[in-house]
C-alpha cells in the first residue's frame, strides 16, 4: 500500500464503488423499499389507528380476536416444530450424502412454495372432506379434520413445509462432510455428531428457517380459509379474523389485528438482529470455517 497520497487525489478503494454511485444505489434500494414495503405497512398502521388508540385497544382485546390469537399460536406451535423435525432430517440426508434422485427430492420439497393456497386447501378437502376419499370413514369414527383445528394445522404445515429445509440444505451442503467424518472416525455416535458438530454449525440457518416458517405460519390466509369453515371464535385464525372484521366494515379493527401480524415481522427482525449482534463473531467464524467451501 505504501506512502500516503493527499486525501483529495486518492482514488476510491478498489473494492468499492465511487461515493456517488454508492449513494445512488442505496437511494434506489431504499426508495424501492419505501414504495413497495414501507408504504403498505404505513397504510396498515394508519388505518389501524384511524379511529384512535381506544378503538385499537378495543379491537385487539375483543374476545373473538383473543381467541383467534390463541388459535394462531396453537397452529404455529404444532406445525413449526413438525417442519423443524422434517427440515433437520431432510437436510442431513440431502446435504451429507450423494444419491440418485436428489434434484427431484429437493424440487418436491420446494413445491409447496408455488402451489396456490387455494389448491393447498382444496387437496385436503378432497382427502378429508365428507365427499372425499377418507372423509366418510373419518366421519363415521367422529374424527374431524377439515373445518376443525386439525385441518388448519395440516394446511399450515403444507404451506410452511419448505422453509426450514430450504434454509438448512444449502448451508449444510456448503459445509461439506469433513468435520462429521472426523467426529465419526474419532468414535462419536451419529447422534452425538449431529448435535455437537452439525447443528452448532447450522444453527443460524435453522434459526432463520424457524423465524420465516413461523412468520408464514401465522400469516397464512388462502389455504386456511378453504379448510376453516369460518366458524367465529372456533376455527378463525388471525388472518381469517382480519377478513371477517373487514367484511363487517370494521376497517380500523381489522387493520388493528393485521398490525399485530406486521408486528410479528418486526419482532422477527429484532430477534435476528440481537442474535447476530451477540453471536456475530461466531457467525463469521462458521462462514470461514475450514471444511467449508474453498
Amino acid at each position: 500500500m505504501g506512502q500516503a497520497t493527499p486525501r483529495l487525489l486518492r482514488p476510491p478503494p478498489p473494492t468499492t464503488e465511487p461515493f456517488a454511485v454508492k449513494w445512488a444505489l442505496i437511494g434506489t434500494a431504499v426508495l424501492f423499499m419505501l414504495l413497495f414495503l414501507v408504504m403498505p405497512l404505513a397504510a396498515v398502521l394508519s388505518e389501524a389507528f384511524s379511529r384512535g388508540i381506544g378503538t385499537y385497544w378495543a379491537a385487539i382485546t375483543d374476545p373473538y380476536t383473543l381467541k383467534s390469537v390463541r388459535l394462531t399460536l396453537l397452529v404455529a406451535a404444532i406445525s413449526v416444530p413438525l417442519n423443524v423435525a422434517f427440515g433437520m432430517t431432510a437436510a442431513w440426508a440431502i446435504a451429507k450424502f450423494e444419491f440418485v434422485g436428489k434434484s427431484v427430492l429437493i424440487t418436491l420439497i420446494d413445491l409447496p412454495f408455488s402451489v396456490s393456497p387455494v389448491i393447498a386447501g382444496l387437496i385436503y378437502v378432497l382427502m378429508f372432506g365428507a365427499q372425499g376419499w377418507i372423509g366418510p370413514w373419518l366421519i363415521d369414527h367422529d374424527i374431524r379434520i377439515v373445518f376443525a383445528v386439525p385441518g388448519l394445522i395440516v394446511a399450515t404445515t403444507f404451506v410452511t413445509f419448505p422453509f426450514v429445509a430450504r434454509e438448512m440444505i444449502p448451508l449444510m451442503q456448503d459445509q461439506g462432510t469433513d468435520e462429521e467424518e472426523a467426529a465419526i472416525l474419532l468414535g462419536a455416535s451419529g447422534w452425538q455428531t449431529f448435535w455437537r458438530v452439525t447443528l452448532p454449525n447450522a444453527k443460524w440457518a435453522l434459526l432463520y428457517g424457524v423465524l420465516l416458517c413461523n412468520a408464514r405460519a401465522m400469516g397464512e390466509f388462502g389455504a386456511v380459509a378453504v379448510v376453516s369453515g369460518h366458524v367465529r371464535g372456533v376455527t378463525t385464525t388471525m388472518p381469517l379474523q382480519i377478513e371477517m372484521l373487514y367484511n363487517e366494515y370494521k376497517f380500523a379493527a381489522s387493520f388493528a389485528v393485521a398490525s399485530l401480524l406486521a408486528l410479528l415481522a418486526v419482532v422477527t427482525l429484532v430477534v435476528k438482529a440481537t442474535l447476530e449482534w451477540r453471536f456475530g463473531e461466531e457467525l463469521a467464524a462458521v462462514h470461514r470455517a475450514p471444511g467449508g467451501k474453498v
Binding site: G132, I139, R144, V146, F147, G229, H230, V231, G233
Partner: peptide
C-alpha cells in the same frame, strides 16, 4: 349459537364437504 359467514356458494360447499 355459533355463526359462520362467507360467500353463499363457498358456504354450501363447506357444508357438503363436512362443515357440520
Amino acid at each position: 349459537v355459533n355463526q359462520a359467514h362467507g360467500g353463499s356458494g363457498a358456504q354450501a360447499r363447506a357444508v357438503i364437504d363436512g362443515l357440520e
